[in-house]
Simulated scan of single mutants.
Amino acid sequence: MSDIKNLEQRIIRALDRISRNVDAVRAAPVQQQTPPPAQAPDDTAELRAQLDAERAKNAQLTERVNAVRQRQESSFTSLERRLARMTEQLDLQSLEMLRLKKANTKLIEANRQLRDGHEAMVIEPSAINRSLVAELEALRAERAADMVEMEDVLGELKPLIATGDDHA
């Protein structure tokens, strides 16, 4: 990118020098005593040809710079969208992991109560119910976390599948 800027600046300086020389040639008083040299029209034509060539190169470089700039902007926009989507997915995963962690904590506590009841030879039906509810909640939380992870994987695969369909 810096090479393009350097070339563009050099071309602009060259065009300015050529323009000043052309203006100087036009502004110079015409000497009527001596005829102009025979090569003067050729020099002017050559300078004009060089000027046109430099302008064409400058236009090409400008187009290339604009194309590179547009590509960078589109990549940046694409990366921003991808970052936003991944941040959202990370937030969902964090919530599901928190839910899973809470459910597992409840399950551990319910199992501890069952063990304590078993050791004391007194098992309360409510402890069994709490244990089963905690286990069911842990399974649901694990399933939800798996679903979020599956959606993330599918989200990453969809663009690859779409490009694969384009090539087919």
Rank of each mutant, 00 (worst) to 15 (best):
E109Q: 14
S126A: 14
A49T: 13
E80M: 02
R140V: 10
A138R: 15
K106N: 14
T77I: 12
L92E: 08
L114A: 09
A59L: 05
M121I: 09
R112G: 04
A56D: 15
A141G: 15
Q89P: 02
A127G: 02
E135G: 14
M121T: 11
P36Y: 11
L95G: 02
D116E: 14
Q72V: 13
K57Q: 09
E109K: 14
A127C: 02
D91Q: 15
E80T: 01
R69P: 01
T44R: 02
P36W: 11
T44G: 01
Q113P: 03
A28H: 02
A84P: 01
A56P: 08
Q113H: 12
A127R: 03
A28P: 00
N58I: 01
D42N: 05
L61G: 07
R71K: 07
R130W: 07
Q70L: 08
K101A: 10
L132Y: 13
E54M: 14
R69Y: 04
Q32M: 08
L107Y: 00
Q39W: 09
L83C: 05
Q32L: 12
L90I: 09
L139K: 15
L100Q: 12
N129C: 10
R112K: 09
L61N: 12
T34C: 03
A145R: 14
M97R: 05
P29V: 02
A24Q: 04
L79T: 10
V148Q: 11
T87F: 03
V68P: 02
R140N: 14
Q113F: 07
M147V: 14
L100E: 10
E46C: 01
R26M: 03
L107I: 00
T105Y: 01
E46P: 00
Q72K: 11
A40G: 00
A59Q: 07
A134Q: 04
A84C: 01
A24K: 03
S126H: 08
A84M: 03
D43S: 09
P37L: 08
A120L: 08
L139D: 15
E142L: 09
R99A: 15
N58Q: 06
A24Y: 01
A120R: 11
P41L: 06
A144W: 03
R85D: 12
M97F: 02
D23G: 01
R26I: 05
D91I: 10
V25Q: 00
F76K: 07
E124L: 14
L92K: 11
D146N: 11
L114T: 06
N111M: 09
E96G: 11
R69D: 07
P41F: 05
L114N: 07
L83N: 06
Q32K: 07
M97S: 02
E88W: 12
N111V: 05
A24G: 01
P29M: 02
E137H: 15
I108T: 07
Q31T: 06
L79V: 12
L83S: 08
R99H: 12
R115K: 11
N111G: 06
E142T: 09
